[in-house]
């Protein structure tokens, strides 16, 4: 088709569109949906927690704050990645809170090792958590993918890896309330391990879920 003819057709078919809200607003909107859902899923566990014990556990509070910040910044970065014109530096935004989260869990591992020796670093199977982790991630994943598909699939792999990091982080935030007092090595192996696996899986499926085929309506 001639380019002039294409322009004529595109202009003739033009429909009004509403510009997407800024990435940080969209990230907060997503978190506004994801957090109440996560809270509802772990509600039974939340009611069993001793509030005074949790409030006094500084490491737990730091870890939870870092987890939530990782979820928020990963979501902001994911939403930025579907807006043409944003620089690449914003994609590294989640690294800072993720670093704090890792450092806090690492410190816990060291403390457990000093206190309990090799036993403090033993990784035990924890498959019981899998159903809860799966259920907790469903709604945040669906909502985030729907929201991301409204943007431009410029770097689908990076976008979906960031989205997976956001979902895994918000899911971990909820899961932690079900595992208050767990050994840090278990958190490192199962929770952060799941974050890494999900992020890699997201990156691998990026083109399929967020490619131009979807945006152009050919898939």
């Amino acid at each position: 088709m001639d380019t002039d003819e294409l322009i004529r057709r595109l202009a003739a078919d033009l429909q009004p569109v509403r510009p997407l809200k800024p990435p940080w607003v969209r990230a907060l909107l997503w978190l506004g949906i994801a957090l109440p859902y996560v809270a509802a899923v772990v509600w039974g566990k939340l009611t069993m927690i001793d509030a005074s014990q949790v409030a006094g556990d500084v490491r737990f509070l730091v870890e939870q704050a870092a987890t939530l910040a990782t979820a928020l910044t990963a979501a902001i970065a994911a939403f930025c990645s579907v807006i043409p014109g944003f620089g690449r530096r914003v994609l590294f935004l989640p690294l800072a809170p993720l670093g704090v989260w890792l450092a806090s869990v690492g410190q816990g591992c060291v403390q457990d090792w000093l206190r309990l020796g090799a036993e403090g670093l033993r990784i035990r199977p924890d498959w019981d958590c899998l159903p809860l982790a799966t259920v907790i991630g469903i709604v945040p994943t669906i909502v985030l993918v729907i929201m991301l598909r409204k943007g431009a699939p410029l770097r689908p792999r990076v976008t979906l890896a960031l989205a997976a990091l956001a979902v895994a982080s918000v899911a971990n935030f909820g899961m932690q309330f079900a595992h208050v007092g767990d050994a840090s090595i278990m958190v490192l192996a199962w929770h952060l391990g799941a974050v890494a696996v999900l992020s890699m899986l997201g990156g691998w499926l990026g083109e399929l879920i967020l490619g131009w085929g979807h945006a152009l309506g050919v898939r």
């Binding site: 380019t3 294409l6 322009i7 595109l10 569109v17 509403r18 510009p19 997407l20 800024p22 579907v82 807006i83 043409p84 409204k150 943007g151 431009a152 131009w212 945006a215 152009l216 309506g217």
Partner: peptide
């Protein structure tokens, strides 16, 4: 490119 920017014209922030 024209088709792509048409498809994602909502991603432009005025």
């Amino acid at each position: 490119i024209l088709l792509s920017l048409h498809a994602v014209r909502n991603s432009y922030d005025p």
